[in-house]
Design a protein around this nucleic acid. Structure first.
Lengths: 223, 223
DNA sequence: TTTTGATTAGGTATTTATACCTTATTTTAC
DNA sequence: GTAAAATAAGGTATAAATACCTAATCAAAA
């Protein structure tokens, strides 16, 4: 247990969390010293803790916890800003390659889909710790395809939608009302409706059905 | 290992699968004899196998595999029809209570969210095996709330949509309003709204966005 | 033959979406 | 440094969707 790689784990699904712990316990050079079920309090907790993980596994789709949405992306930004030595590995349920770029821009050092082989998780941890990053073949290809463009331009180039509009569109597809979207994004219902109006204009849609179809056609939402 | 409860596991996320296996291996009276990453071939495989699980853990959100969507709900229906002695426990990522009713109608013997305590999974397996069902507090509440309301209709409702409902769904996806749909199909707006209500019920959707997503997921509309 | 399910149609009420405006602040681009 | 775009927020409407009822007709299945 001594001098092993100190690993942290932020994952809302309790079972999954324990599962990963069980899997990783097979390797003596890995030691899980931190875990959390939501992202909001992680940085604060670590700042008051005497030891900080070398490698942090972060679930990309951390759900809004009560009234405070705190995504894996935001946690990645905050973690890498606060602990520059820490390596952040993203665990993603959906393998939408577009997210990889966003997460890497946010500071992530690696990207794993949850459907990965357990061995790959171990390898990712060790590689990220020793070499500073773990990029597998799939992630590499996604990066290569989008190289040269900057993150936000990726979205704008093939969709013409802004960042905020994409966020709203995603939530519309997930069946949320304008009011709920406003609560999730901390903006007024009026603003949400403004974004939706722009979405309808830009996508040449008549209503939500058109928006959802557009999102699906352009791969902007995970089916 | 002998005379333990034979457990099967159908879960597309490899890590999660191995995690559950690792967790359940702590109990000697449980033996995992079957696992699969998708649902489509499960029944066929089991029919050709010499031993069949007593309890099967099924991921509710099995993704469409290639061109053949095969949900956890459908797998539950097929499993309980083919192996009447088998107990099916649903693992659900989202705790949408509406699904509980549908899954129970499909033949499930228990419903667990993935955010459950590991101990609860073990207890659910044993209880389902010994007593035939495992209903926890949350599931019970969901059932109680819906009983007497639309429950009967939900129970009666097939996952399958009728021909007319499919026509309406198609036109909804094409951005038509209820009034337009009525004109196209030569029926009253009221009738269209009736069909849409049934569609919302059958697909467990909140609004058109959910209907469109359902249609896309199940290949009911050309993207 | 009885029953069930599909389709049709209506009422009433509420909620949500959509259209069309204006304005201010901040970010980004040139 | 200025211009343009993105973001936020508001008002005032109407249109559409959704919820929750009932009920008639017809065809198919039991």
């Amino acid at each position: 247990m001594k001098n092993g790689i100190k690993v942290g784990l932020v994952e809302d699904q309790h079972l999954f969390r324990d599962g990963i712990k069980a899997i990783l316990s097979a390797w003596q050079d890995i030691e899980i010293i931190f875990e959390a079920g939501e992202g909001f309090s992680v940085v604060q907790t670590l700042l008051q803790s005497e030891q900080v993980p070398d490698v942090m596994l972060v679930d990309l789709s951390l759900p809004p916890n009560g009234s405070t949405p705190y995504s894996g992306e935001q946690l990645t930004i905050d973690l890498t800003a606060t602990f520059p030595e820490m390596k952040v590995l993203i665990l993603s349920g959906h393998q939408d390659e577009k997210f990889i770029i966003r997460l890497i821009e946010a500071g992530a050092h690696g990207y794993l889909v949850k459907d990965s082989d357990p061995l790959e998780v171990y390898q990712a941890i060790v590689t990220a710790y020793e070499k500073g990053a773990y990029i597998n073949e799939r992630a590499l290809m996604a990066i290569q395809q989008n190289i040269g463009k900057k993150t936000k331009e990726i979205f704008r180039s093939d969709t013409d939608l802004t960042w905020r509009e994409l966020e709203v569109l995603e939530l519309i597809c997930r069946q949320h009302t304008a009011e709920e979207i406003g609560e999730k994004l901390f903006i007024s219902v009026k603003t949400v409706n403004g974004h939706r109006s722009n979405l309808l204009l830009k996508t040449a849609s008549r209503n939500v059905a058109g928006l959802v179809m557009y999102a699906v056609k352009n791969g902007l939402v995970n089916i």
